[in-house]
Computed example of a mutant assay.
Amino acid sequence: MRKLTINMCVLACLAAAGCTSVPVDLRDTVVLHYQHVANVHRIDFSSPVMLPHRHLPVESVAPLASQGFWAVFLLCGVDVTGAGVPSFYFDVDRFRVRAGRQRFGPLRPYTLRLDDSADLNSRFDTRVIADAVAMEIQEGPSSQVFRHGYYPRLDYRFAIYVPHALPDYAGDELTLRYEGGRTMVLGNGYPPSDIPVAGLGAMGIASHCLP
């Protein structure tokens, strides 16, 4: 019954988009369900972060471009029930935000301001900063193997950095994609909250998917 429901939903979505020629056979496809819960514009660290080439610890980070933000998502569920899918390897770094022809993924150097200074994240410390941001925002594992089956109510939270303004973006749900394997990524349609500052374990950011 669940598989029939998913196929009917996919058919409806494709028909609405005028894509009736796209195949909807999900036997070899993993379906990932998500909710876009927040857009965050600055992150204050619970504990100062020491960087390898900076004398002072970093207490906060903000986008270099004033309209950049972290898009925060919840992975609500994973459907690995397709007859041709024995298992699925999940890696949070394979998620991408898609906006038109642009795609955004892992943090890149020289896109963040450190504290209120003119210093930017460099190629030497970007991984450290990305890990510190994950410590504040992320809930759930960074990677996991899902065996054949259906996994609801996961509520794995993670953030993807969007370094600049998106044309015509009005604060609605962003499109999420997963790189690697045959996957279909479906949002539940709820708009995200707009949060000026996050920190202290991501207080104020939703941690459970809405039905």
Score class of each variant (00 low, 15 high):
residue 45 F to E: 12
residue 45 F to G: 03
residue 31 V to Q: 05
residue 84 G to C: 12
residue 63 P to M: 09
residue 56 L to P: 01
residue 100 G to W: 12
residue 35 Q to K: 02
residue 44 D to W: 05
residue 46 S to W: 04
residue 31 V to H: 03
residue 25 D to R: 07
residue 33 H to G: 05
residue 55 H to I: 06
residue 42 R to H: 08
residue 64 L to G: 08
residue 88 F to E: 00
residue 40 V to I: 15
residue 48 P to Y: 10
residue 29 T to N: 03
residue 82 G to V: 06
residue 56 L to I: 09
residue 33 H to D: 11
residue 29 T to C: 15
residue 39 N to T: 10
residue 84 G to K: 15
residue 22 V to E: 05
residue 51 L to W: 14
residue 81 T to S: 12
residue 79 D to E: 00
residue 49 V to Q: 14
residue 54 R to N: 07
residue 105 G to L: 14
residue 30 V to E: 00
residue 38 A to F: 13
residue 55 H to P: 02
residue 66 S to R: 02
residue 57 P to I: 01
residue 39 N to D: 07
residue 87 S to G: 01
residue 50 M to S: 12
residue 50 M to P: 01
residue 97 V to Q: 07
residue 90 F to L: 09
residue 27 R to K: 13
residue 50 M to Y: 05
residue 60 S to Q: 15
residue 31 V to T: 14
residue 75 L to N: 00
residue 46 S to Q: 14
residue 79 D to F: 09
residue 89 Y to K: 08
residue 73 F to I: 00
residue 80 V to Y: 03
residue 22 V to Q: 09
residue 36 H to A: 08
residue 46 S to F: 06
residue 35 Q to C: 03
residue 62 A to E: 07
residue 97 V to K: 04
residue 72 V to T: 11
residue 49 V to A: 14
residue 30 V to A: 01
residue 91 D to V: 08
residue 73 F to G: 02
residue 71 A to T: 04
residue 22 V to Y: 13
residue 49 V to L: 15
residue 41 H to N: 06
residue 44 D to S: 04
residue 96 R to V: 12
residue 44 D to A: 05
residue 51 L to V: 11
residue 50 M to T: 13
residue 105 G to P: 04
residue 40 V to K: 14
residue 77 G to H: 06
residue 80 V to H: 00
residue 83 A to W: 07
residue 65 A to N: 11
residue 22 V to F: 06
residue 99 A to L: 00
residue 78 V to S: 07
residue 37 V to A: 06
residue 27 R to S: 14
residue 54 R to Q: 13
residue 83 A to C: 11
residue 96 R to M: 07
residue 34 Y to C: 05
residue 43 I to Y: 02
residue 91 D to G: 05
residue 43 I to N: 09
residue 91 D to P: 00
residue 84 G to Q: 13
residue 40 V to G: 13
residue 54 R to W: 00
residue 51 L to A: 15
residue 26 L to G: 14
residue 70 W to T: 08
residue 58 V to R: 01
residue 102 Q to D: 10
residue 66 S to Y: 08
residue 38 A to H: 06
residue 90 F to S: 02
residue 77 G to E: 12
residue 53 H to S: 08
residue 89 Y to M: 09
residue 89 Y to S: 10
residue 32 L to K: 03
residue 95 F to V: 11
residue 65 A to I: 10
residue 84 G to Y: 09
residue 101 R to D: 13
residue 36 H to G: 12
residue 51 L to C: 05
residue 62 A to S: 09
residue 34 Y to T: 02
residue 87 S to Y: 00
residue 37 V to I: 03
residue 45 F to L: 13
residue 74 L to D: 02
residue 95 F to Q: 03
residue 89 Y to R: 10
residue 21 S to C: 06
residue 70 W to N: 04
residue 100 G to K: 06
residue 31 V to D: 07
residue 85 V to G: 10
residue 79 D to G: 00
residue 98 R to G: 04
residue 92 V to W: 02
residue 61 V to C: 00
residue 86 P to K: 10
residue 50 M to Q: 11
residue 80 V to E: 02
residue 50 M to V: 11
residue 81 T to K: 01
residue 34 Y to P: 00
residue 24 V to I: 12
residue 20 T to K: 01
residue 98 R to V: 15
residue 88 F to C: 01
residue 64 L to F: 07
residue 46 S to E: 14
residue 83 A to Y: 07
residue 44 D to T: 09
residue 99 A to G: 05
